[in-house]
Computed example of a mutant assay.
Amino acid sequence: MPLEHYKRGRFYWVRGRVEFNGTPITDYYRESTGSLTEAGADDWIAAETNYQRRCHLVGPEAALTFAEAVVLYPANPEAAKQLIPITARLGSMPLSSITEDILKDLGKELKPEASTETWWREIVTPARAVINKAHRRNPKVPGISVSRYAGEELNAQDNKRGKLSKIRRIPANKEWIERFCAAADPHNAALVRFMFETAARIDQSTSITHDHLDPKSYRVWLKAQKGHVATWVVVTPEMMGEILSLPHKRTRSPKTGKLLEQRVFGYASSTSYNERWKRICSKADIPYLSAHAAGRHGFFTELTVRQGINPIDAAKAGRWADPSLPMRIYAHAEAEEADLRALFRTKPVQPKTKKPRKSPKKKGKKDDK
């Protein structure tokens, strides 16, 4: 039976086999297309059928194009928007012919005035994800690894733009947190303390409802995000008490005016906090820090740099699978360079050497005369 779609829940699924001249050339399919519409499911079937027939004729390594891989990739709205110009440029290319240099050079063509960080985030990352998803579907299709922009690549673009690509983040410390909270309303004070204590992301934090709280075990349920699975995170009794004491607060959709579901910290989205935090920081006379700098950067720097906690333990508490990642990105040096240089000029204290004690002279016997 050729591939056909059917609706299962909200999504369209497919069943059947891909045929060539009436002969099945694949195993039996029973999987989701990831599409909410019949038209999207039709596109999925057409792309998969064309791909499998070319695999049958020329082999999988040479069969799949980037445009076909994009159709098979379950992109969220943000990634789909990023993939439109990339597909216009690379769509007809077989995946086997796309190299690291092609992906990295695409930034100069599509976003010539952007930073290398933007190239990485909006071009390299979504394109690489499409290729590697196709590789996971069929290991005979080559995957791809891409190194970060560094050295001359990074410096050349920074010089062209006249500013640095990588913005140095300043992590929050306890003093900043306390001054922020003193000037903030209860919901924002609890929000910043929660992120500083748990390393939760802003979207995870603002999505928390009262159904996500387990007061008896002092736990909060965090949704999955950026490669992290959904999980319970333990908080201090003081933190749980502060959360439970917050007045219930509901917000309206800025587009429709409709009341949204009640969320613990009162924000409807992960970007709503920004302007409010700027006003709080101005009132507290402290530098503005983003939620990411106050939360994840502050959390890891506080534990490892200021309190000397083992990076492996700190990474586990912050739900990083690989401790090298937060050490590279989230741990910030805080010692003054001049103070470190001065250590080389400090004369070490010489231990006092004790003079050897003279051994007492033995009294000899007088000769008898």
Rank of each mutant, 00 (worst) to 15 (best):
K258E: 15
E261T: 10
C281A: 15
S270K: 11
L259T: 10
C281I: 03
R276F: 06
T271K: 13
S269K: 06
K278L: 09
S272G: 09
F265K: 03
N274E: 11
I280V: 14
G266Y: 03
R279I: 00
S269C: 05
T271Y: 07
S290P: 04
N274R: 15
G266Q: 00
E275S: 13
L260S: 06
S290M: 04
E261M: 06
A284Q: 06
R276S: 11
E261C: 02
L259G: 00
D285V: 10
G266A: 05
R263K: 14
S269Y: 00
Q262I: 05
Y288F: 15
W277V: 07
V264N: 04
S270T: 08
V264W: 05
W277A: 11
R263T: 06
K278D: 08
Y288K: 06
R276M: 08
K278A: 09
D285F: 00
A268W: 14
T271V: 13
R279C: 01
L260D: 01
I286R: 07
R279H: 12
Y273E: 11
E275I: 09
S282F: 00
R276K: 15
A268R: 11
R276T: 14
N274S: 04
K258A: 14
I286K: 07
Y288I: 09
G266W: 02
I280W: 03
N274Q: 12
R263F: 00
E275W: 01
G266V: 04
G266P: 03
A284I: 07
S270Q: 13
K278Y: 10
P287L: 09
A268F: 12
I286N: 08
R279G: 01
Y288Q: 08
L289E: 01
F265A: 04
S290C: 12
I286L: 09
V264I: 06
S282W: 00
K258Q: 14
S272L: 07
S270F: 02
L260M: 15
I280G: 03
L289W: 04
A268P: 02
R276Q: 14
K283I: 02
S270N: 13
S270W: 02
R276C: 07
L259E: 13
S282K: 15
W277N: 15
I280A: 04
L260K: 15
V264Y: 02
E261G: 08
K283S: 13
A268N: 10
K283C: 05
E261N: 08
S272V: 00
S272W: 10
Q262G: 05
Q262T: 12
F265W: 05
Y288R: 10
K278S: 07
R263E: 04
R279L: 13
F265Q: 01
F265S: 02
P287S: 08
K278W: 11
W277H: 15
S282A: 15
E261Y: 04
